[in-house]
């Protein structure tokens, strides 16, 4: 089975903050890493390869620095890495990102399955996976929680729909996005890391993909525009109470009664 896994380099979101004066994101000095949700996608692919044989190809769209996460994927067991990098890809929203990735995937020959993370931690959209599937006219299932059966023609998967558990058979080629519950991603192997240190990463740009379709890529190809960003705000009139536990409990009950909660 030839499997493509889409991985993205994201900033460590716990460190992202807003420069309130300038209204821009402070991203300097923030560490980058592989989108944590993509590790589940990669793990899913590696397990399928171990079961069925084949190849795991990781693909990412991003600046040249994103080679770092492809190296990481090599150290987990990915076989081939493809980086789509071009100034013309910059400023892409999910529509243009999905388009670019779909074009990149088309250069890879016959692919049986594409796996993406359920969402990124910077964009949080969960849109790129289904977008790629639509561009390729492949079926897709989002938020897969387990793969029950797999062969070269079909995948039997379950999804947890909060009120039901659904088991579906998916004809390949297809795309799935995987939920966090699907597995426990392996750690990066030091041995593999040494072994793959010099493995090449294919870097391709706009001219390798297609000619004369500038308007589908990057900013030009992005219908959505971020007008502004601002810090989340809570404007609530609040009361803070101090005192011993019994008094605090009594105040609480009195308040709940006053507001007719009791």
């Amino acid at each position: 089975m030839r499997i493509v896994v889409c991985i993205k380099q994201v900033p460590d979101t716990t460190e992202v903050a807003i420069d309130t004066e300038k209204g821009i994101l402070k991203r300097e000095g923030v560490d980058s890493r592989i989108n944590p949700y993509d590790l589940y996608a990669l793990e899913t692919a590696l397990r399928l390869k171990e079961e069925l044989g084949g190849e795991v190809i990781v693909i990412s769209m991003g600046p040249p620095q994103a080679q770092a996460i492809i190296k990481e994927a090599y150290a987990m067991g990915a076989d081939i890495g493809l980086l789509l990098s071009d100034r013309k890809f910059a400023g892409a929203d999910t529509l243009a990102t999905a388009y670019t990735l779909a074009q990149g995937i088309k250069t890879l020959g016959k692919i049986d399955l594409i796996i993406t993370g359920m969402q990124t931690t910077d964009g949080d959209t969960a849109q790129v996976g289904p977008g790629i599937a639509e561009y390729l006219h492949w079926p897709h299932i989002s938020y897969v929680t387990s793969i029950i059966k797999a062969d070269l023609k079909t995948l039997t998967v379950t999804t947890d729909m909060s009120d039901t558990i659904e088991t579906q058979i998916l004809k390949l080629p297809a795309l799935i996005t995987v939920a966090k519950d699907i597995n426990q991603p392996r750690l990066l192997s030091y041995k593999l890391k040494l072994k793959t240190e010099n493995r090449a990463i294919n870097i391709i740009g706009y001219n390798d993909l297609t000619k004369g379709e500038e308007e589908f890529f990057g900013l030009d190809g992005s219908p959505t525009q971020v007008e502004r960003i601002f810090p989340p705000q809570h404007d609530i009139k609040r009361e803070i109470w101090q005192g011993n536990a019994v008094k605090l409990a009594q105040c609480t009950i009195a308040k709940l009664k006053e507001l007719r909660y009791l």
């Binding site: 949080d124 525009q225 502004r228």
Partner: peptide, 15 residues
């Protein structure tokens, strides 16, 4: 919508 793990709110249009 919130972005970056809720640290930021983004206002977006599709003009």
């Amino acid at each position: 919508r919130p972005a970056f793990g809720g640290n930021v709110m983004a206002q977006i249009i599709t003009p």
